[in-house]
Nucleic acid binder design. Structure first.
Lengths: 347, 347
DNA sequence: CGTTAGCACTCAAGTAGTGAGAGTGCTAAC
DNA sequence: GTTAGCACTCTCACTACTTGAGTGCTAACG
């Protein structure tokens, strides 16, 4: 069986209607609301074909049809027309970034809030990936004899801190010395490269201060290594509960238990890392039972063309993809620009 | 009408049973399960009295009784016997803190996880209140000409960072000078006191560096002032959904929308700030419609006897208060000790 | 040969009626 | 003061019935 123009029209009608109403769509409804110029009987025939091809399915015999996962996929790939945001909506988004967003965390929070509010779904955003950020500055603070805090500032403005054990006799002045040497050597490198290349140089440099050289090594190894997980913003879960498909509490529970586990959320976001532009992951494409009735629309935000992190929206498979894709796209562009503006010269 | 010993026994039986089963309790059940030595009929009379006094209520005519909010209050204040944790449970908790918890954030996360897991309710923890922490160190990092990052380290190990605008010509060396002066002057003060006392001294000190003195003032005012909100840990929401009283999705929605708004959550936690020991807030005592069917068990964790923040558990009013109070108490003590050990000498 | 009208068939969901079970409150007897 | 007995109430689960939406099939139409 082959897909022809009319089948496409029917499929489009079914999906459009189902997205809007969350009710199975019957042949009669299509004939009435979407002017295809044919009778319900004809549409029934087409629907029967579409069902055989796997694009739609029937919840039960006497109900209308609903799109299958495959149907959504076809829709997203071939049928969907992007909706442009109204200039008022674009305005709202731009406004959101104007109001003193200084810190990277603020940009992310603001983006997440807007994303959740506009799409009415849950928003998920990863902070810029640390392994792609580069080292800006290190600072050692003596907390008390024997313990120091290592503070690492990345060029994205991200802060990493860590408490390490040091010999009792090391003073703040010693720490400052180490800071200085490290700063000179490490500036501008990505975390990946730090360990491999420069240990020898630093060793040599610090050999004047024999007593602290071991410390510095220790510090590089432990202080920089741990705690490298990126944080995740998650908001607007409440929106998902407003969707009729989540009136069933069991689904809510399973979804929520997934979202509460940050590692799972991260793997979800990472596995659906889009190359370029906006990607749509539908239901079981995400390979997780808990979200088989959900879809994600994700995109990467970039700084100087380099993708730094992922942001996205999580909602039921029955979502208005055209709209959500447009919002995510516009949002991503604005967020990227805001960050770029913020980081100009920080590298 | 006066409360007598037998009424107390009956009330205790009702609450105990209801906590365990979530079903209204009838006179027959009490007579059978709780050996009061009287017949159901007598218990019925007592129940009738208790209802009149407001301690219990009837969902409908032919159902048993359930505790009213007042009933729970009476139970918590007068009837409840603390359950001691088994040594195995205590062991689990202690273990949780042994495994390299270095940072304040880790202590909080770990505590939250354990609290949620043990009580099977949602856990809420506030980070140590900044206004009670004292200043440890300030560090200024030049991000690019015209912008600097202010990093403030508190004695609790908490980090605050902020981007500020500075004159283009200010160099990292200038910033280091300012850092040095500020560090010397500010060390050990609480944030509250910083502004008022020392501006003049610092002004004098920096007058050698005329060009940056204004900057330093600006920095103190903006850099330290903003972003002073304490963060909140929230976890284990999923547990609440497992309670039968939350099978109604509307309640879930209303609760979740409250929990998603951090300020509301904070006000909830702050308003039920316990003086000493563990406090229980039942239903509408929290003054919020969304949690009228919930209770909180909260306590303050202390460092050197000074209460630094609040932690607590949020669950349905029908919770095993005796058990939860014990867990929260033990947990608070352990968390306080862990933090104290960690901070020894940091102030 | 594609399209359409007509019709029998199916199924979910709502409605009404029924009976069982749990629990109470009252009364009278102990 | 306590208890047994009993009538009464109300929820809940179960069943039967009706309604309406929607399909699939068949035969007729252009």
């Amino acid at each position: 069986m082959k897909m022809d123009a009319r089948k496409q029209q029917v499929l489009l009608a079914i999906i459009t209607d189902f997205i809007a109403t969350a009710e199975p769509v019957g042949s009669r409804t299509i004939a009435r609301k979407y002017d295809l110029g044919v009778s319900p009987a004809t549409i029934r025939n087409e629907m029967s074909d579409l069902e055989e091809m796997g694009y739609i399915e029937q919840p039960h015999t006497s109900a209308g049809r609903i799109p299958s996962q495959l149907g959504y996929r076809y829709y997203v790939d071939f049928l969907m027309k992007k909706k442009n945001l109204t200039s008022k909506e674009e305005e709202t988004i731009r406004r959101g970034y104007e109001n003193k967003v200084r810190q990277i965390g603020e940009v992310i929070t603001r983006t997440g809030e807007m994303l959740a509010q506009m799409t009415r779904f849950a928003a998920v955003i990863m902070t810029p990936r640390l392994e792609l950020s580069s080292f800006k500055r290190i600072q050692l603070v003596l907390m008390n004899p024997g313990q120091a805090m290592v503070i690492v500032v990345m060029n994205t403005g991200a802060l990493q801190s860590n408490i390490i054990e040091i010999p009792e006799e090391v003073s703040q002045v010693d720490l400052d010395t180490i800071s200085q040497v490290l700063n000179a050597k490490l500036n501008g490198l990505t975390l990946d490269k730090i360990k491999v290349t420069l240990l020898r140089e630093i060793y040599f440099e610090l050999s004047r201060h024999k007593n602290i050289v071991d410390l510095a090594m220790h510090l590089i190894q432990t202080g920089l290594a741990v705690n490298r997980e990126d944080k995740i913003y998650l908001g607007g879960i409440i929106n998902i509960l407003n969707q009729p498909e989540f009136h069933n509490i069991e689904k809510v529970k399973s979804l929520l238990s997934l979202l509460e586990q940050e590692e799972l959320l991260r793997s979800l976001l990472e596995s659906s890392d889009p190359g370029e532009g906006v990607a749509v992951r539908i239901g079981s494409e995400m390979m997780r039972e808990e979200v088989k009735d959900c879809s994600m629309v994700v995109a990467s935000y970039c700084i100087d063309g380099r993708p730094m992190g992922t942001l996205g929206v999580l909602g039921p498979t029955r979502m208005d993809y055209a709209w959500v894709v447009s919002v995510v796209e516009y949002m991503t562009r604005n967020m990227s620009e805001t960050m770029e503006k913020m980081f100009r010269g920080w590298r």
